[in-house]
Structures are given as C-alpha cells and as structure tokens.
Design a protein around this nucleic acid. Structure first.
Lengths: 142, 142
DNA sequence: AATAAATAGTTACCCAAGGTAACCATTTTG
DNA sequence: CAAAATGGTTACCTTGGGTAACTATTTATT
C-alpha cells in the first residue's frame, strides 16, 4: 500500500472517535460540535455574517441559518445591526464569550493530553499537510 | 495560539470538503462514504462479522446492520455461512470486488493529485501522528 | 444437564447535520 | 430604472449516526 492511501484511511478512522469525544464534552454546555465551530470562528474574528460562516465552514447557507438560530436561542450569540439590511452579522453574547472561555479550557486540556508524545515539529508538519490538502481539494473541486 | 489548537481546527476544517468530494466520486457507483468504508475493510480483511466492523469503524451495531443491508441490496456484499449461527459474516461479492477495483483506481488518482507537493516523509509523519492521536482518544475515552 | 450470562444481530424508534429548490428583500450594476 | 447579484429563510429530504429493547444462539456456572 502506498503512503497516501494510508493517509486517507487514517484520516477518516480518527474522525468518529474524535468528534464523539468532543460532543461528549460539549454536553455540559448544551452544545454540539457544529455549533461550537461557529463560536470558535466568532471568537477568532469577533463578528461574521452567515455567508462568511458558510464559506469558512464549507456548508450551505440553510445549514448555517439553522445552527446560528440554535446559538441565538441558547443566548450564546447575538445579532448586531449593520448598514446592509440583507446581512445578518453576529457576534458572541456576553454569555457566549464566557462559554467559549470555559470550553477552551476543557478542550485545551484534552487536546494536550491526546497530543502527548508528539513533538511540536511533527504537529507543525501535520498542520501544514492538512492545510495543503484542503487547498488542493477545494481548488480541484470548484 | 499553541500548535495543538491549530491541529484540531485544521483537522476538522478538512473533513467537510474532503468527504463531500469523495461522496461526489462515489455517486457513479451508488455508494456513500460510510458504505465504501465497509467495502474498504472487506477488501483488506477478506471477510468480517458485523461486530468486527462495528469495532473497527467505531460505530454502533445497528448502524452497521443498516449499512451492510444497503450493500447487500446493491449486490456488492454477500453473507457467507459460518459455524456460529449468531454471526453474520460477510465478504465482497463478485460485483463488489470489481467495484472496489474501480473506486480504488479513482481514489488513488485523486489522492495522488491532492497530495502533490507533500514528501513521503511528511506523509509518514502525518499518518503516525493520527494513529497516535486516535489511540490516545480511545484509551482516554473508555 | 439445566440454568444463567454473554454475545451477535435486528427492530423500532430518535436526532444531528448536512443538502436542494424555491423564494423574499435588499443592494449593485448596466 | 430595470436586471442581476447577494444575503438570508423556508420547506422538505437524506445520510449517518445513536439508544433501548428485543430474539437467537453460544458459553459458562452451578
């Protein structure tokens, strides 16, 4: 078997245990991973529109609408007024900011645990490879 | 941001474009990725029981039952008789073997394309890291 | 040998997370 | 100013997973 074939297989066999575990941790905050990923971006970028999220997450607009609505209902996210009346621009609410801090603590802890024994250099390699692969996939796809 | 935080984010942002693209390719064979992953294992291990698959795939038994039934309906997979009457042991059918060959060709081609510019050494590093991470996740989880 | 426990699989439900098609409002462009 | 583009929503559908409760069979215990 060639290395690249191993790569894809390994990539996907990691997904299920990984996302299961993260969802289990998010239970305490009434969140699922798909919701968390939006909060993650809002933490990084302060505020975003649904279309921006849609492109970042690589999912369709209706999916974003639904997930954002769930976050608004949880009071983790709020809409902010903006000139263009078509746009829905959102940011983390006060509660949301707090939840992000909490979840980050939990995730950082967990992430460090499961990365034990992997050098910073190797971590950097993996990140670079995944970035490249993603770019390649998207470039070919569209 | 620490490296490990980058790692997790990168890992998940790759997933959606990746699985979308693979599903698009599998359309020609009336397959979805979840079904393909079972055929992949059957190709590697010749024959497997549903419980074995369940453990390998890290999904519950009912999920395996459903997916396998779909593959049997497609005539890509067939049951083989076995001493223990509780067990359902399956293997690729003749058609299934053929389909695996075809899909492999398509995937290998695609995979090589999107891995361009990544050295064999880096690919090996990524594989090793993902294996380690998966083991760590599963060890912590249970 | 008879019973209890374990194992393999199925059935009947439920839910998260995505998708498409069609649409409305608003803004931008020709 | 009409046409096209953009941002978002609604309605409906699908994949792919889950849990609880069950049957059938095999294995272990008494």
């Amino acid at each position: 078997m060639d290395a690249h074939r191993h790569f894809f297989h390994k990539y996907f066999t990691l997904y299920r245990p990984f996302v299961n575990e993260l969802n289990r941790m998010l239970e305490d905050y009434n969140l699922y991973y798909a919701q968390w990923s939006i909060m993650y971006y809002l933490d990084v970028y302060q505020s975003m529109t649904l279309v921006e999220l849609s492109k970042m997450l690589y999912v369709e607009k209706p999916t974003v609408t639904r997930t954002v609505n769930a976050l608004i209902k949880l009071d983790y996210v709020e809409q902010i007024p903006v000139r263009d009346k078509r746009e829905k621009r959102i940011q983390l609410s006060k509660t949301g900011v707090h939840v992000v801090q909490e979840v980050r603590k939990v995730f950082d802890q967990y992430e460090q645990e499961i990365m034990t024994g992997i050098s910073n250099e190797d971590q950097a390699t993996v990140i670079r490879v995944m970035e490249t692969v993603r770019d390649n996939i998207i470039r070919k796809g569209d």
